[in-house]
Design a protein around this nucleic acid. Sequence first.
DNA 1: AAATTTCGCAACCGCTGCCAC
DNA 2: CGTGGCAGCGGTTGCGAAATT
Length: 240
Amino acid sequence: MGRSPCCEKAHINKGAWTKEEDDRLVAYIRAHGEGCWRLLPKAAGLLRCGKSCRLRWINYLRPGLKRGNFTEVEDELIINLHSHLGNKWSLIAGRLPGRTDNEIKNYWNTHIRRKLLSRGIDPETHRLIHAPASGFTMSFAKGEEKDRSLLPCEQEKIIGSSSSSSCSSSSGEGSRQIQKYRCPDLNLDLCLSPPPSQQQVEECTRCFSRCRGLQLTRKECKCDAFLGLGSGLCRSLEMK
DNA sequence: AAATTTCGCAACCGCTGCCAC
DNA sequence: CGTGGCAGCGGTTGCGAAATT
């Protein structure tokens, strides 16, 4: 047999939280700490289900939350992370101190999605929308040239080159440029590490921009921040 | 100034994996 | 080992605010 139900559906408040409810929740968690969301509403005197309390605390009441406008640095980091992780909002949030998965998800859907579309980039695949189908498949598979992942910068380089054969050619200037921009094969065995500080996040993205600008590979960069993924995650996404 | 449309965000819903029984 | 609840996650919805007509 399982445990008893977390809460009765009847007599449960729904919708926006009031100031009083917020105060009760904050006071209770300050006094008793997080945990056991099932029992928390009753103990705190709230007519809410545990799930709702957890969401409210994590997304809005928990200390250390930033709230408000995202910086350019954060924008770029989210885009970079999303290109590698997809809609894994909790993982992405883990690399952005003070931001929640819900906030990032909303921000992605309202701002970044539009931003990428205006650049002609498909927000789902991070590929140019009108790129030719062959050779542009987004994949995490290792070692297959035809399925390799492309960063927007790489796609721009290819599209921007004058020769129509630059993509398929294995020699010449065009292919050398493509080689410099290659997205590394990915090892997605992500390791857990403490989230980076704000300073690390900014440094990370600065480095990423610098690497892209100078066309540096990870080895040339010799920096843990390569790919703008923060030290821990960055290391786990190293080139093979 | 009023009506309508669009946008952004907070909160809910439903699914999944884990784990207590 | 099977059942069912819990916590966490991603997708979706609903509502208030802002912009437009």
